[in-house]
Each structure stands twice: as C-alpha cells, then as structure tokens.
Design a protein around this nucleic acid. Structure first.
Length: 554
RNA sequence: GCGCCUGUAGCUCAGCUGGAUAGAGCAACGGACUUCUAAUCCGUAGGUCGCACGUUCGAAUCGUGCCAGGCGCGCCA
C-alpha cells in the first residue's frame, strides 16, 4: 500500500513539473507515514515540506500542485487532503484493504517474508558462554535475541547460520580444572584452601564427585598438571553438555559449535598472526606483539602475543573472525553482553585491517537483565556461586513466557525480569495475551466446523461483508506486517515483531468482544472466518519468528 | 578521569531513522460473563519526554554542555 502511494505521488510530482507547476525536478525520497490521529487520514507524506527549499515555494502551494495531478485509476483513495503546514493526507478506501486477506491466505506461512537478504550468507553468533558454569538469565536474553534475529533474517531470504563459540582454551579453562581438582582432593580428605578466584558453585563439587565415581583415586597418582588438565576437560565437556540441554529446553538450536582450541590445533591463529606481521599490521614492542588497532579507530594498540609468548584472547578472536569471513559469510553478527562493549572497537578494527568492510560486521550489544521476584531483586552473586540459572527460570515460568519477555524490550534497554509476573496468566503477561488470540480463533474455527462450515477461504464476495470499522482497522494492521518484519530485519530488532503482535492481539480481542464471528448470516460468517483465520496465521507466523509456540487450546 | 548504554505517566516500557494533539500494559477508580474460551473487553484519571542551550518550517528523536543510574576501561577472559 505504501509503495503504491509512493508511485502515485512521484507520478503526480512529475506531471506537475511537466506542467510547470513545480520549479525543480529534484524530488526527495518519498516518506510515507501513518499519522497517529485518524483525522489526518491513513497515510500522510511530508514531501511538500521537504521540497520547500529546493522548489523555492511555500509547502502548501507545492502540496496543492501535487494534489491536483494525483491519478487514482483503481479507486484506492477516498480523498486526499492538504493539512497543517503542508502535509498531504491520504484517506484510503476501506475496500482497498481487503486484498491483503487474499495474500495472507495464499502466502500462508510465508506471509510477511521478503527477499531483501537475496540469499546472502550471514552468520549469527550468540550465547557463546564460557563452559565454566551454567547459563544464567542474561545468557537467556542473548539466546532469545540471537535466535530470533536469525529467524527473522532467514525469513527475509538470508542464508543464516547459527553458531556458538566455545572458549575451551586459555586460562579460565585451567582455572576451572583447578577448581574441580581442589574439590576432588577435598573428597579424599585433603585439607585445601579454596582460592577466591576459583569457581565457587556447587556444580564444581558435583563434577568432582562424578570424577571420583568414574575414576576413584586414580588422579591422585598423576602429576598435578595432568590431573588439573583432566579435570578441566572433563568439567568443560560436562558443563557444555548441560548448556546444550538448557538451550534445547529453550528451543535454540545451533548449526555449529565452534571450538576456540581448534583454532590453535589447526594453526589458524599462528598463520593469521604471521600474515598480519608480514603486512606490518602487527608489530613488536617491549617483547610483545601489538595490533595497530588505533589506526582503525581504537583508542590504542592492543597486544596479541604477550612477552611470555602466550597469545591473548584477542588473538583467538582475530583468527576466529577471519575464519568466519573465510567461510564465505558476507555479514557477521555477534551477540554480546553489554559488559563486553569495550571490546567492539578493537575487534572491528582488526576486521577492517584484514580487508573487510566495516559494515560487514555488526555487534548486537545486549543490556544486562535484572532478575526480580515480586518487585524485589533476586540475589545474584557469582562469587558465592549462588545464582538463579536459566534452567531454573525456564522451569519456573516456561520457555514461551521467558522468550517473549526477553523480546519485549529493545536489546539496548535494561530489562527487569520479574519471575512472579512471568508466571501470571493475565494481561500483566503479554505472552498469554497474544497466544490467547491464537487459541480463541482456533476454538472459533473448531466450532464453525462443527456447525457445518466446510471451508474457510478467500473469496471476492467477502469485500462487501467486512465493513465494520474494527474489521478495517484489523486489515490495516495485518497489511503492515510485512513492513514490520522488514524493518526488524534491517535494524536487527525483534521487539518490533513483539509489539506488532500485542497490537494485533488487542485489536482482535476488542473485535471479538464486540462482534460475533459465527452469526446467523452465512455470508457474514464466512467473511469473518476468513478474516479471523488470517489473524491466526499472522499471529502464528510472528510467534514463530520469536520462537514462541502458538497453542490451539489454552 | 575517559568511553559506551539508559533517563518518557506512580511502576514496566514503546515511540516507526526529524513531523501534526505523546502511546500501551500494570497499578487506581467505575462498568461488562444464559451468546464463538472473562488468560478477555469498555470507560475514567494520570506528562516540564532528566535539565539547559543550539540546529530548522518543526525536536522525545539530531548536536553541545551539565545531572542521575548501569557497564567497561590489563601483556585477563
């Protein structure tokens, strides 16, 4: 509909110029807005205001000239008005909305999709939590956002891969091994002093116990180094298994689990660093090797190889992202927690230095989650090891509620996640509000089938039946869905879908309370069933992009 | 000290890349179930968009400076 209006406006503007009603042929990009107030019509454009300086004419005069030349062959518009400082307002003929129903029924589960991705390969890397402890709520938010972004991009014709980067190398893994090893020694009665920088949680003790059950006292005979390394590998594998289970429970599936260690084993880290040394992008100073990130916008150069010969985390990441692009991804999207924001500059600097374009790499920075219960903060202390895990949350409130709530905020907003509200089955909790639409409509359709209505489908005759203002309103909302999907793909903002669904749900519930779908008039019944089924399909499609189920019954 | 994010109704948040009279839910108050699911709906009330300048036809939105909260500033990950 918007595109149609843009065409009409441009056509009219050109004609106005040809008739010398306008001075210049320079037309700006036509923006179509949906005014908040109904008296300003269904759509409006500010083109006359924007053109004023170029045309050297008052906006209202320009608007008048364009309006006079507007041609509307198929009767899409009821009227066109000029208002305020020079807005052109369009009032759409209510019947012009109806064809969207045909499209919804024809496109079905593809309705709302687009081809903006054009088959391009894009990778979304998300969660990527260290395998040193269970996932917590913050990871859940990252998982929900990352998975949904991947869904949306895929729906818009991107060739999407979901990847989880496993930090299974380096110091934190050794610390993990050490933590478990000490607890293991403890099980054999040794008095140990458990350092503060070791992992404190109960799961460390449980892991040690498992090793004892598997291996008995065998590790006691090995050298400390070997025993710690064994504990590290054992624990990391076990924790990773748990992480996979949690994510499975959360409905998130990765295409690939990428091991940091594999970058070392394959020599990728070394070769990438050597190439950058050859290109003089990495240089030596004070016995260490530095990346010239400051030449690409970072505030200072960063160390890649320390003077003790060990590489930094940054080195792995350079190699990792180089590998991503080598695998043919045109766009690489990383989903990170906000506490890593200081890292973006240097990584994107390194990517640019490696010959990629800046806009091929994008970080979605997720703000932290505040876990509450009934308004009061839940203690989340990693030091004491006492925290509510993602699994706890899923088990208490369910995957659907958790995912939906994570997606009701812009990812840059801090999020208060209240366990009590997430459990409520009322208007407090928007997930049920939306799902309820799906269940209600399912119920209506079941009833309709019982009453002998055989097939619900699009039919030209429906146009004369759906005339209630609430029905037109719903059609307008449905028609805007493809735009919502596209902008949420372009901006990587899933919450737009969430808000759209809540809005559509509100319109439906209101309609439901005012009008009966199954009425005495067969023609009306048929038309309304067609409308309501279209709503159901769009709700289902939208929820699917969010990774939330659409129940037939509630 | 420097950098990033946030600041909109009592609370939790939207606000479509600068538009016209600022939006929803919750909480408060008053209503609606013999009718397709009341996990719903209808109505009332609620605002100095943190503050101050600036940019222009026009600012919650852009710029600068303050204020408040969160996070980050290692040859850690």
């Amino acid at each position: 509909m918007k595109q149609k209006l843009i065409d009409i406006i441009l056509f009219a503007a050109n004609r106005a110029y040809e008739k010398e009603k306008l001075q210049s042929k320079e037309f700006p990009f036509v923006e179509i807005e949906e005014p908040k107030v109904a008296t300003f019509g269904d759509f409006s454009t500010n083109i006359a205001l924007v053109m004023a300086s170029v045309q050297k004419m008052p906006p209202r005069k320009i608007a008048e000239a364009i309006k006079e030349e507007i041609e509307d062959a198929d009767g899409t518009l009821d009227k066109v008005e000029i208002a305020g400082p020079g807005f052109i307002n369009f009032f759409v003929n209510p019947k012009a909305w109806l064809p969207v129903l045909r499209r919804i029924h024809e496109d079905d589960d593809r309705f709302g999709s687009s081809d903006i991705g054009n088959g391009r390969k894009v990778q979304v890397e998300f969660v990527s939590a260290n395998p040193t402890g269970p996932l917590h709520v913050g990871h859940g938010r990252g998982a929900a956002v990352g998975d949904s972004v991947a869904n949306i991009l895929s729906f818009c014709s991107y060739d999407v891969q979901r990847e989880y980067y496993i930090n299974d190398s380096g110091r934190q893994i050794r610390t993990l091994g050490n933590s478990v090893y000490l607890r293991y020694l403890e099980l054999f009665g040794e008095k140990i002093e458990f350092p503060g920088d070791c992992y404190q949680g109960d799961y460390i003790r449980e892991t040690a116990l498992k090793i004892k059950e598997d291996k008995g006292g065998l590790l006691l005979d090995e050298s400390e180094n070997e025993a710690v390394m064994f504990c590290a590998r054992f624990a990391a594998a076990l924790i990773l298994e748990g992480i996979k289970e949690d994510l499975d429970l959360f409905g998130v599936k990765f295409d690939r689990w990428f091991s940091e260690q594999s970058l070392f084993d394959s020599g990728k880290v070394e070769s990438v660093i050597n190439n950058l040394k050859d290109a003089d992008i990495i240089y030596e100073k004070d016995g260490a090797f530095w990346f010239r990130t400051s030449e690409y916008g970072d505030e200072k150069d960063r160390v890649v190889v320390r003077n003790n010969g060990l590489t930094t985390y940054f080195a792995s990441d350079i190699a990792y992202h180089s590998d991503k692009f080598d695998r043919g991804f045109e766009r690489v999207i990383d989903v990170w927690g906000a506490d890593h924001h200081g890292y973006i500059e240097r990584l994107s600097a390194s990517i640019e230095a490696s010959g990629r374009k800046k806009n091929q790499f994008h970080v979605i920075l997720i703000q932290l989650v505040n876990l509450l219960r009934g308004g009061a903060p839940v203690a989340m202390s990693t030091r004491s090891g006492e925290f509510v895990t993602l699994q706890d949350v899923i088990k208490e409130v369910g995957t659907d509620a958790a995912r939906f709530i994570f997606l009701t905020r812009h990812y840059e907003s801090h999020l208060d996640f209240d366990l009590e509200i997430a459990k409520k089955k009322s208007n407090d909790n928007p997930v049920y509000y939306v799902q309820y639409v799906h269940a209600r409509i399912s119920s209506i359709i079941r009833k309709g089938l019982e009453d002998g209505i055989d097939e619900v489908s699009w039919d030209e005759k429906i146009i004369s039946v759906l005339t209630e203002p609430e029905e037109i309103q719903i059609l307008k909302i449905l028609a805007s869905y493809p735009d919502v999907v596209r902008s949420s793909a372009e901006l990587l903002e899933p919450h737009r879908i969430t808000y759209f669904l809540m809005n559509l749900a509100a319109a439906f519930h209101s309609y439901y309370n005012k009008h009966r779908v199954l009425s005495d008039d067969p023609a009306v019944t048929k038309g309304r069933l067609c409308l309501v089924l279209a709503i159901k399909k769009v709700i289902r499609n939208g929820l699917k992009l969010l990774g939330v189920s659409a129940p037939e019954k509630m």
